[in-house]
């Protein structure tokens, strides 16, 4: 701080000497930059906005993979952004609006309000939001309703459990997760009305927390865990693996169900993952893009459930016949049947 006087004088002198050059250079650079922007091409442009990380091994990663795949199949211009907090969502959506994207998909319930707000500003861009449970004007809400598949998993869990205690771990209490829990409970109760289903919430991106939660579950005698925690799911798998290895066949094993993605083939404890509730996002995205392209885009809640084949329960084929007995398969299939033809109504 002593030198700041000298320092200041020196710098001021330097500034005075080079001021004009610096200004010219800056202007030139600006012109070059503006000129370098390429004009937009006239292809169909679709954007996906995620609030989490593309590397979360679940919801966000899956969404991006799906949109990229659909883009490749239908020759779309695809843009996908991660780590967009709902605070920033309005800006990002307006960016896309101004660049005349044909379709913008907000990948998470938190984008519903921002999308509604931007869509109300007009423009030809269509907006869709995944994972929300409400309708908003101008917005297509892809509900990705896992309640049905979760119901099936609940049925399976109630048949698998020896202790009569099931557990559910979610990352946060958001609509898509809450639907899973509700479906799971309803399914389990349909087999055994007195069954216990514990629920707990941890975090999307802290596997360590999920692991200790799963351990707490197992310690309490819970032997089937249904998790929806994306990147943190491997913590649950690790807990289940360790429990099953220490039991080594002497006690009844602990099972875990996957969600969002098909997690039946996970390397950690695939042998104890009888089923997953899977969302085929690609299917839904493809249908959505087609609708926009054909001009029959309709706002409102698109259920995207079992009936559409988007949300399904997938049994682990390697465990069929051993862990999953034929009776269980029949019960799960029966539940699916009743769900599909409206005999069971969830929510």
């Amino acid at each position: 701080m002593i030198g700041s006087n000298v320092e200041r004088q020196m710098t001021q002198a330097a500034f005075r000497r080079h001021r004009r050059e610096a200004l010219l250079l800056a202007v030139a650079a600006l012109i070059a930059l503006v000129a370098a922007v390429r004009p937009a091409r006239a292809t169909f442009k679709v954007a996906l906005i995620c609030s989490g990380s593309f590397t979360d091994g679940g919801w966000n990663q899956q969404g991006r993979a799906a949109i990229v795949r659909v883009g490749r199949q239908l020759h779309l211009h695809v843009s996908a952004v991660e780590h967009v907090s709902p605070v920033r969502a309005v800006n990002v959506m307006r960016d896309y609006l101004m660049e005349h994207y044909n379709l913008v998909i907000g990948h998470g319930y938190e984008f519903l309000m921002p999308a509604a707000e931007i869509a109300a500003e007009g423009g030809s861009t269509k907006f869709a939001v995944c994972g929300a449970d409400q309708a908003q004007p101008h917005i297509a809400t892809l509900a990705f309703d896992l309640a049905g598949p979760s119901y099936q998993l609940g049925v399976l869990a109630a048949l698998l459990t020896k202790s009569g205690k099931l557990g559910f771990i979610g990352g946060q209490a958001i609509p898509s997760v809450v639907a899973c829990y509700r479906g799971f409970v309803a399914g389990a109760r349909s087999i055994n009305p007195r069954i216990t289903v514990a629920q707990a919430y941890t975090s999307w991106d802290q596997p360590a927390l999920s692991r200790s939660q799963a351990e707490a579950f197992i310690q309490q005698g819970i032997d089937v865990i249904y998790q929806n925690v994306d990147a943190a799911s491997r913590g649950v798998f690790e807990a289940v693996r360790r429990a099953d290895e220490s039991r080594a066949g002497q006690q009844s094993p602990v099972y875990v169900f996957g969600s969002n993605r098909n997690q039946n083939n996970n390397t950690t404890c695939g042998a104890f993952t009888p089923a997953s509730a899977v969302i085929h996002m690609g299917l839904a995205f493809r249908r959505l893009v087609r609708a926009v392209q054909r001009g029959n885009f309709k706002p409102g809640v698109v259920p995207e459930n079992m009936a559409d084949g988007v949300c399904v329960a997938v049994l682990n084929p390697r465990l069929e016949g051993t862990v999953i007995t034929a009776a269980m398969q029949r019960a799960v299939a029966h539940a699916a049947e009743r769900l599909r033809n409206g005999k069971i109504r969830l929510r």
Binding site: S85, V87, M113, Q172
Partner: peptide
């Protein structure tokens, strides 16, 4: 942020 930008609030609200 709430009154000017988002006009509502969710559980994950940025880390400003």
């Amino acid at each position: 942020q709430v009154l000017g930008v988002t006009h509502f609030m969710t559980a994950s609200f940025g880390d400003y």
